[in-house]
Amino acid sequence: MSRVRTALVRAAGAAAGLAVAGTAVGVARRHRVIHRRGAGDLTPFGSLRTPPLTVVADDGVPLHVEIEEYAAPPDQPRRPAPPLSIVFVHGYALNLDCWHFQRAGYRGLVRSVFYDQRSHGRSGRSDRHHATIDQLGADLARVLEETVPEGPVVVVGHSMGGMTIVALAEQRPELFGERIVGVGLISTTAGGLDPSRILLPMVPSRLGGRGLHTGVRALAHGHRSVDRLRRVGRAVATVATDRFAFGDEVPRSYLDFVDEMLAATPFEVVAEFFPNFRRLDKFDAVEVLGQVPTSVICGTADKLTAVGHSRKLHSRIAGSRLLECEGAGHMVIMERHEQVNAELDQLIAAATERVGRR
């Protein structure tokens, strides 16, 4: 997409957002969003923090949660509660910090919930039998119950986080349209994934095809040695991250930040969750998302969950919007954070309008 076309698309999106909002309040909110642009680049990675709380999953695993509360503008009376909450669900081998640009961009503008998935980040370790996409869906349900006990909510997932939302839709379809009023699916799929793509930034050596699954199982038994190799071979790992996480050239700080998250995830955890991707087959479950505003977002140069997966999701979810970020890779939430945040703003506006029509 040319720069001119990109500018036109963004301008059209902004105009549509104002049309959806349709009120002085909507215009004021949009102005605050615009004012926050660039906040992520001005904020050091990993520095956005709020006092943590713990949500205990149904099998006893503690999940680390951080909440950014809504802050009413000084010229507006503080409402007893924000009209909407957003729950962000991160992907495989990452942690809640991957939402850096979304957290910085929406800080204070809306109530936002971030959490580390089980065995990731600062959350507790899962046993191998509960390291499944279905369990992650159940975990999300618990997070919603504990952190958004009432009021409408939008759920946004990246990569495995999107799969988590799809699992929740399969398990609890009644939540969509009542409690959940909007969905964002970013760089994700509901099935048909080539698992070898997912592992490429994290394996210490070249593995492929059927041998990949055998190799992962073998490496899992010696996971401590693998972790040492990953630390020693950081230069090789950095090259892999650059190649498979991003599409265009990005600042070195972006690359280092993602690399640190990947390196901090023990290979034992990587190996435990890995079999899920080959078995994933939940496209029939996504149709329920057509009951609420849904945005599907992907980079056209995503080497891990190729854009075709997002196109298929879009085709299966009635009324959904599809944003293809030209030239962006799997970490589109960082690489094209302005485009992603603009699309999420449209999602929030549509979800808010839906709540207002109740």
Rank of each mutant, 00 (worst) to 15 (best):
R278I: 02
P82R: 12
G46A: 10
I198C: 00
L144A: 05
Q339G: 02
V25Y: 14
V33G: 00
E326H: 13
V226C: 03
L229R: 15
C298H: 02
F88L: 05
D345M: 02
V20F: 03
V296H: 04
F246E: 11
Q117I: 04
V61M: 01
D58E: 12
G26Y: 07
Q76T: 08
P149C: 14
Y106T: 07
L200H: 13
S47E: 14
A138R: 14
R358L: 15
P293V: 01
E170T: 09
E249S: 13
M163N: 03
S187I: 05
L304N: 04
T265N: 02
N276V: 05
D97F: 02
L84Y: 05
L168N: 00
E338D: 07
E268V: 08
T305N: 09
D248K: 12
D284G: 10
V232M: 12
V286M: 04
G299K: 07
P201T: 15
L42I: 06
V355D: 01
T43P: 01
L48R: 07
E260Q: 15
R231A: 12
L344H: 08
G356A: 14
R252F: 06
P204V: 12
N276C: 13
A264D: 13
K312C: 08
G121K: 00
R279W: 09
L109A: 06
A16E: 13
G184I: 11
H31I: 11
A306D: 07
Y70T: 11
S187N: 09
E174P: 00
T294C: 15
G157Y: 01
L193E: 02
T294R: 07
T305R: 08
V307P: 01
R49I: 01
L175V: 04
R210Q: 15
A131R: 10
T164C: 03
D139M: 08
I34R: 13
G105P: 03
A190G: 06
G46M: 03
L289R: 01
P204E: 13
Q171W: 06
H31K: 15
P173G: 07
G299W: 04
H337A: 08
E174W: 02
M261S: 03
V87W: 01
T6W: 09
L255R: 06
S295T: 15
H35L: 12
A138C: 12
S85Q: 00
P152S: 09
H120Q: 03
F267M: 05
G13H: 07
F273V: 06
V340D: 04
V226P: 04
I133G: 06
I86E: 00
A72Q: 06
A39G: 06
L8E: 08
H314E: 14
G91M: 07
V148T: 02
A24K: 12
A220S: 14
T238Y: 00
M261T: 05
G215M: 04
D59M: 02
A104M: 05
V87A: 07
V332A: 01
T241R: 05
P82K: 08
G157L: 06
G211A: 14
P293F: 02
R5C: 00
G151H: 10
R206W: 11
S295A: 15
A271P: 00
G17F: 01
G121M: 00
C298N: 11
R230L: 13
S85I: 01
D242A: 15
D256T: 09
L323F: 10
L304Y: 05
V156P: 01
V239R: 14
